[in-house]
Amino acid sequence: MFSKRVFVLPFLILFLSSCNPVTTGVESETYPSRSITGVIPFGPGGGADSIARVISQHTEPILGESIVLQNVEGGAGSIAAYDVHKDPANGYKILFGAENPNLYRTTGISDLSYHDYEPIMLFARTVPVVIVHPDSPFQTLDDLIEQAEADPGKILMATTGPVGTSGVVTSMLGLDFAMVPYKGEGASITGLMGKQIEASIVSLPSAYNYILANKVRVLGIVNDTRLEDFGDWPALGEVAPDYLEHLPWGAYYGAYVKKGTPEPIIEKLRDSFTQAFHTDEFQSFIERSKMISLGLTGDEALAYQTEWESRTNWFLYQSGFAEHPSNYNIPIPRNETQKERKNPFD
């Protein structure tokens, strides 16, 4: 009797396994057969939130199912990243992420990174802007930098965490601000308008409508040169040439699924988002929001992501804000010589 059970059990397991739609490809063929959850790592009003909502409304008719968006805030986006990663790799949870997970490991925020996800598409990148209240005594980017150097730790600067736009740029600058935490860029702009803080560094899409309404004032852009589409705002690279080696730099936004998601599902999502990306309506949104269009998929998306991860982690390490990138097999950026500096994490 015992030997019969041993003989039958493997066949029973094989039969039950064959009923699993993930392993047989049935779910891949019928995907999507129900609504998809889209997880946004930050609060309403920020760049990630805005682009997720616009791209989703143009993707839903193509997929034939709704994308139900949820703002899962906290942990510099790591809570949302975990929320997507803990679920099965079946395409029913999409992370509408920004660049932050590239920096989780070296800054000790999470063991997860974008190496644990598959990019569906990288939609666009942004140029960060340094903004103040219209009544601020700081009239130029130079004013802000000089005051921060003369009076370290006094200027109230918003931060969405060490791997958010404000956290990375202030690390790049190597200046000592009094960092005031906010859950997202939208919340930090509200704080700036209410004079709870003196300055903020956010992605241009998050601030653009407030700039047009004269509710905040731009001191400059975090870029190597001025850009024609950004008016007369001075670039950090021209005001402070010492930072040119790190520029241009900025956040980028994309859609991801958990690594291990079946390739047919990835392809279906990639095709649907690509069609939505190329609609006139979405391209108009990108232009109005002053983003820089990417539209990268597959190997191109991975190459862009890898270069960004490499360059940013190494300059954070140089500034003493991250562990040695080689601990996580993050290579030195191509065509750049990095100077080793004493690191408090070593």
Score class of each variant (00 low, 15 high):
residue 4 K to N: 11
residue 6 V to G: 05
residue 11 F to P: 00
residue 15 F to L: 15
residue 19 C to G: 09
residue 20 N to A: 13
residue 23 T to V: 14
residue 23 T to G: 08
residue 24 T to C: 08
residue 26 V to D: 11
residue 27 E to Y: 06
residue 32 P to M: 08
residue 39 V to G: 08
residue 41 P to C: 10
residue 46 G to E: 12
residue 55 I to D: 11
residue 57 Q to N: 08
residue 58 H to T: 10
residue 59 T to G: 01
residue 59 T to M: 07
residue 62 I to Y: 11
residue 63 L to H: 07
residue 64 G to K: 10
residue 64 G to Q: 06
residue 71 N to D: 11
residue 72 V to H: 08
residue 81 A to L: 03
residue 82 Y to I: 07
residue 83 D to Y: 14
residue 85 H to D: 12
residue 86 K to G: 02
residue 90 N to K: 03
residue 91 G to P: 01
residue 92 Y to Q: 07
residue 103 L to G: 02
residue 104 Y to S: 03
residue 115 H to E: 13
residue 120 I to D: 10
residue 121 M to I: 15
residue 122 L to M: 09
residue 127 V to G: 01
residue 127 V to E: 01
residue 128 P to V: 09
residue 129 V to S: 02
residue 131 I to W: 03
residue 133 H to I: 03
residue 136 S to D: 01
residue 138 F to V: 04
residue 139 Q to K: 14
residue 147 Q to P: 00
residue 147 Q to E: 15
residue 152 P to W: 02
residue 157 M to Y: 05
residue 157 M to P: 06
residue 161 G to N: 12
residue 167 G to L: 02
residue 167 G to D: 05
residue 170 T to P: 07
residue 170 T to V: 14
residue 171 S to R: 12
residue 179 M to V: 03
residue 180 V to K: 10
residue 181 P to C: 08
residue 183 K to R: 13
residue 184 G to D: 15
residue 193 M to Y: 00
residue 196 Q to N: 09
residue 201 I to Q: 02
residue 202 V to P: 07
residue 203 S to M: 07
residue 205 P to Q: 08
residue 206 S to E: 12
residue 207 A to Q: 04
residue 207 A to K: 05
residue 208 Y to Q: 14
residue 209 N to Q: 14
residue 212 L to D: 09
residue 213 A to D: 13
residue 215 K to R: 15
residue 216 V to L: 06
residue 217 R to G: 06
residue 218 V to A: 11
residue 219 L to Y: 09
residue 230 F to T: 02
residue 233 W to R: 08
residue 238 E to W: 00
residue 238 E to S: 14
residue 241 P to D: 05
residue 242 D to F: 10
residue 246 H to I: 03
residue 247 L to N: 06
residue 251 A to W: 00
residue 252 Y to Q: 01
residue 253 Y to F: 15
residue 254 G to D: 04
residue 258 K to L: 11
residue 261 T to V: 12
residue 269 L to W: 08
residue 270 R to F: 03
residue 276 A to K: 03
residue 285 F to N: 00
residue 287 E to V: 05
residue 287 E to M: 04
residue 291 M to I: 01
residue 300 E to F: 06
residue 306 T to K: 15
residue 310 S to G: 02
residue 312 T to F: 01
residue 313 N to C: 10
residue 314 W to K: 03
residue 317 Y to C: 12
residue 323 E to K: 15
residue 325 P to D: 02
residue 327 N to H: 07
residue 329 N to R: 01
residue 332 I to C: 07
residue 333 P to A: 06
residue 333 P to N: 03
residue 334 R to P: 10
residue 335 N to W: 00
residue 335 N to A: 08
residue 339 K to L: 15
residue 343 N to A: 07
residue 345 F to T: 12
residue 346 D to T: 11
